[in-house]
């Protein structure tokens, strides 16, 4: 017994030494304090930023939603999805088509988009999640391409030029048409995404994802249906992407197939890997880096993906847990 208490105390002493900030963040009230401060800053930002900066920040919150969605698939369930942009496209095109061709109210398109995202998730995930994880990676890659090609070639999706004139949504007669409005919409979505991610991670389902990620066979032996659990992750990720797509269409009022290329999926994945797979603060940092880096280093232009790819390689080789430090 003496041994045990000894080793725990040295452990915690090391933890304090290793990361003062992380140790300070350990108690719940400190964390709530930090979150409240950050939320306050985020809410106040429109007062001090110009329109250009507002655009960039809206984009940051938007990528936070997408990255958190993909994080459920990659970070929580340990599945590599290389066609995540396809779900984003499903949501964007559902809203685009329903509002511009059928004049349906924007808010009503969201449940429809969720429905289609679930369908797409089940159709792709259902059969492939039984197989080895690398098959899923390549099938999702193929699926991403299929969705883009379909969008390019159908009349209803507007072909290669895409859809234009998508109606801006309004809340009780108040039309969302300025960048400030969308800033708050995306901020709200990002907060909601954090909340849902957090609750999922710390639940029966979240634990099951971790079991399956660590040892599939042992998890299966403990009575966990690995295919079912992975499908949950895949479909929930799809819903995040789909809903983000709806709001993307509403903000841009125009969408085209090129927005949903393979590079888009890779960018979202990069955000997840960069900050730290499976860790909400890490993924948020990743999304920030993803959007802000090219804005700060504008002269890089089309080289930015190259720089990102090199960074991704270095992270995988030397710091696989990402920017955000791992627990313990």
């Amino acid at each position: 017994m003496a041994d045990i208490s000894n080793s725990t105390s040295t452990n915690s002493a090391q933890a304090v030494k290793a990361g003062g900030l992380m140790a300070w963040l350990e108690p719940q009230q400190n964390r709530i304090l930090v979150l409240a401060a950050l939320a306050g800053i985020a809410l106040a930002l429109p007062l001090i930023l110009n329109n250009y900066a507002m655009e960039v920040m809206s984009s940051v919150w938007f990528y936070v939603v997408l990255c958190l969605g993909l994080n459920i698939v990659v970070g929580y369930a340990g599945l590599l999805d290389l066609g995540y942009a396809a779900f984003f496209a499903v949501g964007a095109y559902t809203t685009g088509i329903l509002t511009s061709h059928f004049g349906i109210n924007f808010w009503l398109t969201i449940p429809v988009a969720i429905f289609f995202s679930i369908c797409a998730g089940v159709i792709i995930g259902g059969p492939t999640l039984r197989l080895r994880s690398d098959y899923l990676a390549i099938v999702t890659l193929g699926f991403g391409e299929i969705v883009r090609i379909i969008a390019r070639n159908l009349e209803i999706t507007g072909g290669a030029s895409g859809l234009i004139g998508i109606e801006k949504p309004s809340i009780m007669g108040f039309e969302l048409n300025e960048i400030q409005h969308f800033y708050y919409v995306f901020l709200l979505l990002a907060i909601l995404a954090c909340f849902i991610s957090y609750r999922l991670q710390h639940s029966r389902l979240g634990r099951a994802w971790q079991y399956v990620r660590e040892d599939e066979d042992a998890a299966e032996a403990m009575g966990i249906n690995r295919v079912g659990i992975k499908l949950y992750a895949y479909v929930i990720g799809a819903i995040f992407g789909g809903v983000a797509g709806c709001f993307f269409a509403a903000k841009m009022t125009a969408i085209s197939p090129e927005t949903f290329m393979f590079q888009q999926s890779v960018l979202i994945l990069l955000g997840v890997v960069l900050g730290g797979m499976g860790k909400i603060p890490g993924v948020i940092i990743g999304a920030f880096a993803l959007v802000l880096f090219p804005e700060v280093f504008r002269e890089l232009g089309s080289m930015r993906i190259l720089v990102f790819a090199v960074v991704m390689l270095i992270i995988m080789l030397y710091r696989p847990e990402g920017i955000w430090p791992a627990k313990k």
Binding site: L200, S203, R204, L205, R207, A208, Y211, A218, A219, M222, G223, I224, Y232, I236
Partner: peptide, 11 residues
């Protein structure tokens, strides 16, 4: 993990 199959809570 053992209790997973005896419990129900979903997403």
């Amino acid at each position: 993990s053992g209790m997973h199959c005896r419990t129900k809570a979903g997403p």
